[in-house]
Amino acid sequence: MNTKDLITTIRGQQSLSAEEAEQLFNATVAAVKAQLLKGNIVAVQGFGQLEPKKKNERISVSPTTGERMLVPPKISVSFKPSNVLKDRFS
């Protein structure tokens, strides 16, 4: 399922106008994003939580050349599904 499908699906459930549906969708994504950028954890009950995490720098070795590379630190978003969601798929 892609973004378009998602919007139309929700629109059908909520009986929204196409314009409104798109607006709400964008606002929701933007809100989540804004919180993640602030470093906050977005926890959605029954779904899971999205958390920005800092990955420390590390030395990795290229398997082909054997070169050792220093990989810089980075911040990434991790998703931890809630138990409810987990149970649905196990």
């Binding site: 399922m1 998602l6 929700i10 459930q13 909520q14 929204l16 929701t28 994504v29 994003k33 649905r88």
Partner: peptide, 28 residues
């Protein structure tokens, strides 16, 4: 908005069980 946001995540969860993959533009 409250309805929408809840539906948003619910739909994602449902779509996961159906399609196995959900791409949300701007999120991941």
């Amino acid at each position: 908005c409250d309805d929408y946001v809840k539906a948003f995540f619910e739909t994602i969860a449902n779509a996961l069980s159906v399609d196995g993959i959900v791409k949300v533009k701007g999120l991941g």
